[in-house]
């Protein structure tokens, strides 16, 4: 191993046998279902899932906006729709999705300007993303319920 490192360090091409062996030793892929995902990875995939869900539900949300700004009868329709437990649950999930996406987005913007890049801060900021987004969901959820 020392030999290989020295050779790379000296910027000299490795002998073919060593090259082949080092290629063979590399894992071919990461099995995502078998490795334990760290919290930032979970937050990251949730950023994507929440974004996709918000995109798919966009027409429904615009429809609700239309009802909320329409005639009084339409506002009553909105109240009926939003009053059903299933829709309430979906809206609450979308609210959480939006707030998670929002908090995680701010974390990404901070990382873009090299704030909180080291492992310890990156983990702490992920915990903060979860705490703040869930807390805001509860506050706004109670307020809008």
């Amino acid at each position: 191993m020392q030999f290989v490192v020295m050779k790379i360090g000296a910027n000299i091409q490795m002998p073919e046998i060593i090259q082949q062996r080092s290629i063979k030793q590399r894992p071919k892929y990461l099995n995502l279902t078998e490795i334990r995902q760290p919290l930032p990875a979970i937050a990251s995939i949730m950023h994507r899932i929440s974004g996709g869900a918000l995109f798919l539900m966009l027409p429904f949300l615009i429809y609700l906006l239309q009802l909320s700004l329409g005639a009084p009868s339409e506002f009553e329709t909105l109240k009926t729709i939003a009053g059903s437990p299933l829709i309430k649950l979906i809206l609450l999930a979308l609210l959480w999705g939006f707030l998670h996406h929002f908090c995680m987005g701010i974390r990404i913007l901070l990382i873009d300007i090299h704030r909180g890049v080291d492992l310890k801060t990156a983990r702490a900021s992920t915990v903060a993303v979860f705490c703040i987004s869930i807390l805001l969901t509860l506050i706004l959820g109670v307020k809008l319920w």
Binding site: F55, Q66, L69
Partner: peptide
């Protein structure tokens, strides 16, 4: 489909806003 849906949504939401 994504582009068409987003353009449609932008138009729809704008129309809701300016009809107020």
């Amino acid at each position: 489909l994504t582009a068409l849906m987003l353009i449609g949504c932008a138009g729809w939401a704008s129309q809701i806003l300016w009809r107020l």
